[in-house]
Design a protein around this nucleic acid. Structure first.
Lengths: 156, 156
DNA sequence: TATTTTGTTTAATATGTACTAAACAAACTT
DNA sequence: AAGTTTGTTTAGTACATATTAAACAAAATA
């Protein structure tokens, strides 16, 4: 059973970061992402992150670099200041879906090549591979639709 | 550029396992899974896996236990033999989608609770969190449809 | 009961990653 | 130029995971 409600922003950040960790990233990566979703103002400087999350400068440097590469966040500058600010990038969730689709396409491709190998192998039953291939083909196709659908839904 | 074609089953297994590793599992986990997709016969004993993949018994023991827990593979026995055989479990891909959905629902839930926290915080802009929440809500909803759709498509 | 087969657990190593503090670099201020 | 501020890189530690060989347990066979 999960706790019923968050009593402050860091509670949200903790819960969120644990989930992100479960999905394969580092805890700190999740903390920064979670914080950037709920902080005020929406843009945060390097030292804002260091102080609010009680983490080292190096961790901020590493995790933000990853997130910038992934396109999850972006840098901004504020008029007249020289500090860099980070904020959640608008549209990053669409990018995320597109990345999922890339993986799906890879797996479709790999299983397809596996099937071609089996053509010259009358002995081996290809049912399993055919199913896996059909699955990824199906997913890739449907994901394309989903992405479009979401883009539209998002506008409303 | 990926190699054009596989000249044998282990080529497929290598390629497949690298992708699986990229998706967050161990290399050996991917090797076993890939091998079980393309081997003959479709069921393989403990020592079949050890010998064909050149890995240790302990690795087979660990990785198969994980895959059994996840429901990706299952055990079988063959008439009159006492060895255990492993094979790809039919329907495991549907389980996989359902697991994805569980994650999506978690994130919808977490962001929802984050939004509730913000209700008593007039200062913070909740646009980011609202978007994230709407996204996961959308995904969860659509995934339900996808799963049903795939179940039907699979029958044909 | 003794022996073989089959699979699990343990112990040890290797490898990789997360994280930090401190050194460093770059750019702005004075 | 000298000193701040800001961010990156480096070096080191801690921690987790993957992998194996070998010890072990369980069950079938002889």
């Amino acid at each position: 059973m999960k706790p019923t409600n968050y009593s402050n922003k860091l509670d949200f950040v903790d819960d969120f970061s644990l989930k992100i960790e479960e999905l394969g990233h580092s805890r700190i990566y999740g903390q920064i992402l979670g914080w950037l979703l709920i902080c005020h103002p929406p843009h945060q400087s390097f030292s804002d992150l260091v102080e609010n999350l009680s983490i080292s400068k190096a961790s901020v440097s590493n995790s933000t670099r990853m997130m910038l590469e992934t396109g999850l966040i972006e840098k901004t500058r504020v008029q007249g200041e020289r500090q860099i600010y980070f904020r959640i990038k608008d549209g990053s969730l669409i990018d995320f879906m597109q990345k999922q689709m890339a993986h799906t396409l890879s797996l479709e491709h790999i299983t397809q090549k596996g099937l071609e190998l089996l053509k010259s192998d009358t002995e081996t039953d290809s049912t399993r591979l055919k199913r896996a291939n059909a699955f990824h083909h199906f997913l890739a196709q449907q994901l394309t639709g989903l992405i479009e659908k979401y883009k539209i839904e998002r506008q409303s």
